[in-house]
Design a protein around this nucleic acid. Structure first.
Lengths: 145, 145
DNA sequence: ATAGATGCAAATGGTTTGCAGAGCT
DNA sequence: AGCTCTGCAAACCATTTGCATCTAT
């Protein structure tokens, strides 16, 4: 299995795009993170390493990384798109606390199989899916009461 | 079963809010639509009936309608929130053809139950969920070949 | 050498908000 | 009268884009 860095380099080469220090740094930063970062958060971390990097470059590079299937955009329904390094990782969905934004990665074979069946029943060839479960976590429920 | 209009009136009364011609008109307009409208599209339709209504009122009324559980916001991840009259209707998710944008409403009890269980297993109280299945429909597959 | 990349700042676009006047009860 | 509501325009805010300059190849 290729390293994500190589996938990116290949993607750039295939599209006549250039490997730059900024792009390298942004990819490395995202790969080093366990959490799902927003563009803004990622920008802050990148800036710590190289303060000269601009916001726009982060946005532009994220777009490339998504296009190259190395990174996946996540929609936690709070107006901010988050990103996670997805290359080589097993597919999973997310369970999100709408109060504290805590999120848990979930993977359920029953649902996956059912989704496939639903699509087939309607004559669709399933390509992908997105599933987000929104709720309130135990901690937040306890705080409220 | 109460009419959505009555649900709205009750909701307004319960919150010391007033029944106004604009709110009536906006609700009626949304109820008369089969499709999922964005705020902007809804605004256009409302304006045809009463050109004096402002954009902001549409947004504010939509917020109330969502809060009153009469209308549901849909997030197709394209930057525009769409709304559908959901009161009295069964919950459903969406199966979307990525080629022709055909959109089929789906409802699967197995998945719903499974989602609930997953949330509970992680100590979450499930509030809502979003599920989108993306695929290619029969028509588009036939066209391709 | 040159197409592409960058940083900056300004622009975008959907949505929200402050405000003064208007309207409901 | 005393609230809330409305329309307008300005403000917001995450994201995108135009442009002059810089850089990888």
């Amino acid at each position: 299995m290729k390293m994500p860095q190589d996938v990116f380099i290949d993607y750039l080469a295939d599209n006549n795009l250039k490997i730059t220090p900024q792009r390298r740094l942004i990819l490395e930063t995202i790969l080093s993170q366990k959490e799902h970062l927003s563009s803004e958060e990622l920008y802050a971390k990148v800036k710590k390493e190289d303060p000269s990097v601009g916001q726009a470059t982060v946005y532009r590079t994220l777009k490339l990384l998504v296009e190259a299937d190395i990174v996946e955009p996540l929609d936690f329904a709070d107006g901010v798109t988050r990103y996670e390094a997805s290359y080589g990782k097993e597919h999973h969905d997310h369970l999100i606390c709408t109060l504290c934004n805590k999120n848990i990665e979930i993977m359920d074979p029953v649902i996956e199989k059912q989704q496939e069946q639903i699509a087939n029943k309607h004559g669709f060839e399933l390509c992908s899916h997105k599933m987000y479960l929104y709720g309130i976590c135990e901690d937040c429920r306890n705080k409220k009461r």
